[in-house]
Nucleic acid binder design. Structure first.
Length: 290
DNA sequence: GGAAAGGCCTGAAAGC
DNA sequence: TGCTTTCAGGCCTTTC
């Protein structure tokens, strides 16, 4: 089967969560002693000169996640916001080994360690904002509900679904509704809920049982994916002082339908189909997803 | 204002 | 063998 570029997992909520947890354990409390921007276009909202000047000397106090954004809260009220998009990732190195050519920004840390932001396709973005002004950022304000939070309820999902004539797959990808799902986990959640990706969102809302099934499938899909990341995040590589690299091995496909065109549905055995929806591949079982 | 299409981006795979 | 085309998908902008 064809694997997506990037090593078997686009960074959706579970992958970002894994990076945040691992990164937090390494860089929390460390001071940034220098910054080198190798690709200026990666830096948003301010000049490279200002970006480097503002970062130098600040301490990374906390690493957290909102939607698919990685947030590094720094001393003096600044936050470094990173979005990996498709192929972004980090390499943390304790040695002087050269970074890969895909390194876009280098953060020099006290003690000699270096953290590189890498990105093959250059779709990822980094911006530095005042923590207190995050809410003034339009894109930030538009972000929808966190699916694993208490504020995400069956009732809230039902209200969002109601009145939307879009296909449910497109609805799930809309980050202004529910955040964190991408093309892979949207397909997985729909298979688990036994809902056709072509079904209109509003038609899901007409059945309480369907809304509950979708609600639970979203949470279970994400929780299982987060647990599966426990061996180590795919988007964070470690290089020790001896220059030896440790990068988690790609596990066999953990997906029920994604990337499994032609293989039997794990529920009913019918062949998994692949269709195009809004320019994206959608994998589903035509027999048990209705 | 909602929905859909197009574009960005690069490397692997497919097609010729 | 080597060149060209297609595809992967998150998210923005443009268009309807």
């Amino acid at each position: 089967m064809a694997w997506p570029i990037g090593g078997g997992g686009m960074p959706e909520l579970p992958e970002v969560e894994a990076v945040v947890n691992a990164l937090g354990g390494i860089v929390r409390g460390k001071r940034i002693t220098g910054v080198r921007v190798l690709r200026p276009q990666t830096i948003q909202s301010m000049s490279v000169t200002r970006f480097c000047r503002l970062l130098r000397g600040r301490v990374i106090e906390r690493v957290r996640r909102r939607a698919k954004f990685i947030l590094l809260d720094l001393s003096d009220g600044w936050t470094l916001v990173v979005h990996l998009r498709m192929t972004g990732g980090f390499v943390y190195a304790e040695s002087r080994r050269p970074f890969p050519p895909t390194a876009r920004v280098l953060f020099l840390l006290e003690g000699g360690a270096r953290l590189a932001y890498t990105d093959i396709r250059n779709l990822g973005l980094i911006r530095l904002v005042r923590t207190e002004r995050l809410d003034r950022w339009a894109e930030w304000r538009r972000l929808g509900v966190e699916p694993l939070s208490r504020t995400f309820t069956v009732r809230r999902l039902e209200e969002m679904l109601r009145g939307s004539r879009r296909a449910i797959k497109a609805f799930l990808l809309d980050q202004t509704k529910v955040v964190g799902l991408g093309n892979i986990y949207a397909a997985e959640a729909l298979h688990r809920a036994r809902l056709s990706p072509m079904r209109r969102a509003e038609s899901v809302a007409r059945s309480r049982a369907r809304v509950v099934a979708l609600y639970e499938s979203i949470r279970e899909t994400l929780r299982e994916a987060i647990a599966a990341q426990s061996t180590g995040p795919l988007h964070l590589e470690f290089v020790n002082a001896q220059g030896q690299s440790h990068h988690p091995r790609r596990a066999p496909s953990p997906f029920r339908v994604y990337g499994r065109e032609g293989e039997p549905c794990p529920v009913c055995g019918a062949p998994i189909r692949r269709i195009k929806q809004h320019g994206r591949s959608t994998y589903y079982c035509a027999r048990c997803q209705t």
